[in-house]
Every structure is written in structure tokens, then in C-alpha cells.
């Protein structure tokens, strides 16, 4: 079992990591953006008087500091060397702040936001999808389907903006921007937690409202195929209680693709939620990655993507390893 099931998956896992991390090194270097040019431009844009006589020397000095001297291979080898020692290098745009510090600063916001919206929408969407298939004629299920189908095609940006205008501007119930209020003391206390939740409420709501539809439809589609399976018909004919059929025979089987989807989405968390962050001026990884790409901050782009690659691959690995527990057929094979 271990040899046949675990070893190939572990090999696959490390291969994906190696290829992914290598691509993450190469791709930013193919971008036309040049971190040194961007930095020089930023310095003058921020008003610094750069005597042209100093520009050339400054450019040299920046290349030296950024570690951009030397060939690609040399840079690639030192990149792996640094990576093995847990060092993602310094950010170019925030030099010499280590990339890891910037990620640490943004990641908790993104994880909090996306994990909350993902779990809420996943749970509600999955349950409602299962319920809809099991009780297709109930009024609640039909209404839910209508809402899910109606919400799903709305572009996220529009939905987020509507919520913002409605609940922050017309009825100023929730704040318009930021992760917490001016004057809130950061700490593990009820006051701060309530403030955090209040600021996160609209961003989470905007995502949940749309994501529920996706999970609902996926669950409904998978489960609707299952209700006609022989074992479900047999269970019904045997007179088993409806709730038992729904939860143990239909939903348990239908949930496996949902779990795969959940795993993948958890992995994608590391990329952040750019539009949400922009609309609600909420901190997180999305804007960090976006500004890194614009500025050609190779190290930061690589750092964030490494997190993402490791996140998605690990999530997939865990799901793969958990499959035998969830699905006896895999165990049997």
C-alpha cells in the first residue's frame, strides 16, 4: 500500500515543486520590466533629485544590491541555495526588507478573509446542493436554486461594488476601507476582534454570495447523478430513513469532488483576492503580488508564488492521501 500509493504521490509532489519553483524563477526574468529601471523611476517620481552624473553609478550599485549581477545560472543556483536555508531574499521595492517579512505581513489578512469566505460558502453551498437534490420539490430548495443561479453570473466586481455602495455609503453601516479602525489597539481582545470582523464582513459577504452558487451547482450536479444509482434506489426501497439516505448515501459520495475543489481553492489562497482587496481597500497578498509584478520585484513575485505552489501541491497531496479514508473504493484498489 505504502509503496504503491504513497511513494508515487510523493515523487509527483516533489517534481511539481521543482518544476514550479524553477518556472517561477525564469518567468519574471522574461518580463520586460526591469526592477532597477523601476526603482530609479520611483526615486525620481518621489521627487528625489537624481543628478544624471550619479545615475549610472547608482544603477550599478542597485544591481549589486539586488543580486542581479552575474549570469542566469549563477543567480539560479544561489536562488536554490537561499531557498534551502529558508531565505526568499530581499524585496527590491522594499529593500532590504526580506520577502518573507512582507508575506508574513499580508498573509494573515488573506488567509483570514479567504478561509472564512471559502469555508462558509463551501459548507452552505454543499449542504444546499445536497438538499436540493434530495428534496427537489421543496420550496426552500427551489428558491435556493433560483438565487444561486441568479447570483452566479453577476461579475464579482459589480457585486462587491454594489455591496460597498449600499452598506458603506448609502447606509453607512460597515466601513469603506481598511482592515481595522483608526484607534483600535491591535491585540487579542474582544474589542479588536469585533472591529476586525466588522471590517472583514463586507469583503467576506461579497465573496460568499457569489461562491455559494458555484459550490451549490457543483454539488447539485454530482448528487443528481447519484440519486438514480442502484444503491440509492435500493436504500429507498429498503425503507431507510430519508435523512440517512441523503447524508450517508448521496452526500457522502457526492462530496468527494467538492473536497478536491476545496483543497485546490485553499491552495489558491496564497495568490490573494486582488479585486476584493482593491474594492474594499483590504490588506492582503493580492495587492502585494500585483505591485510586485508591476515593479518587476522578482524576489517578491517568486516568494509569493512559491507559497502558492507549495500551498496547492500540498493541499492536493493531502487530499490524495485522505482519499482512501473518504472513499473505500480507493482503499480497496
Amino acid at each position: 500500500m505504502f509503496k504503491k500509493f504513497f511513494i508515487p504521490r510523493l515523487i509527483q509532489y516533489f517534481t511539481v515543486l521543482f518544476i514550479g519553483i524553477t518556472l517561477v524563477f525564469v518567468i519574471p526574468r522574461l518580463l520586460p520590466s526591469d526592477p532597477v529601471a523601476t526603482q530609479l523611476q520611483r526615486m525620481t517620481a518621489q521627487g528625489q533629485y537624481l543628478d544624471p552624473a550619479a545615475v549610472e553609478e547608482l544603477r550599478e550599485s542597485l544591481e549589486e544590491l539586488y543580486g542581479l549581477k552575474g549570469g542566469m545560472l549563477q543567480q539560479y543556483l544561489s536562488y536554490w541555495k537561499r531557498l534551502f536555508s529558508g531565505d526568499l531574499g530581499p524585496s527590491f521595492t522594499q529593500f532590504p526588507t526580506p520577502v518573507i517579512s512582507l508575506i508574513k505581513m499580508s498573509l494573515p489578512w488573506t488567509v483570514g478573509l479567504l478561509l472564512a469566505s471559502l469555508s462558509i460558502s463551501w459548507i452552505i453551498g454543499t449542504i444546499l446542493g445536497g438538499v436540493k437534490v434530495s428534496f427537489p420539490n421543496s420550496l426552500v430548495a427551489r428558491a435556493m436554486e433560483l438565487v444561486a443561479m441568479g447570483m452566479r453570473p453577476i461579475p464579482y466586481y459589480i457585486m462587491a461594488l454594489v455591496l460597498l455602495i449600499l452598506l458603506s455609503f448609502i447606509f453607512p453601516i460597515f466601513p469603506m476601507a481598511g482592515g481595522y479602525s483608526v484607534g483600535s489597539k491591535v491585540g487579542l481582545n474582544m474589542r479588536f476582534i469585533k472591529d476586525l470582523l466588522r471590517h472583514a464582513f463586507l469583503p467576506i459577504l461579497s465573496m460568499v454570495v457569489l461562491e455559494i452558487g458555484g459550490w451549490f451547482l457543483q454539488m447539485r450536479n454530482v448528487a443528481s447523478n447519484l440519486v438514480e444509482e442502484d444503491y440509492v434506489v435500493y436504500a429507498e426501497a429498503s425503507g431507510l430513513p430519508k435523512s440517512k439516505i441523503v447524508f450517508r448515501y448521496i452526500m457522502r459520495n457526492a462530496i468527494i469532488p467538492q473536497i478536491t475543489g476545496l483543497g485546490l481553492n485553499i491552495g489558491f489562497i496564497f495568490g490573494g483576492a486582488l479585486i476584493t482587496e482593491i474594492v474594499f481597500s483590504y490588506p492582503g497578498m493580492g495587492t502585494l503580488l500585483y505591485s510586485a509584478i508591476l515593479a518587476g520585484d522578482y524576489n517578491l513575485i517568486m516568494g509569493i508564488n512559491i507559497f502558492s505552489i507549495v500551498g496547492v501541491s500540498t493541499a492536493m497531496l493531502i487530499i490524495d492521501l485522505l482519499y482512501p479514508l473518504l472513499d473505500p473504493r480507493v482503499r480497496y484498489q
Partner: peptide, 17 residues
């Protein structure tokens, strides 16, 4: 109750100048 509490908390929460 949670949503209401979040809404109402705006009245008492921020210690802004």
C-alpha cells in the same frame, strides 16, 4: 445577532480622535 452586533459595534468601537 452577530451581524447586528457588528453593525451596532461601530457606534462604540473606534476610539478615533
Amino acid at each position: 445577532a452577530t451581524v447586528l452586533s457588528l453593525c451596532l459595534s461601530s457606534l462604540v468601537m473606534a476610539v478615533e480622535p
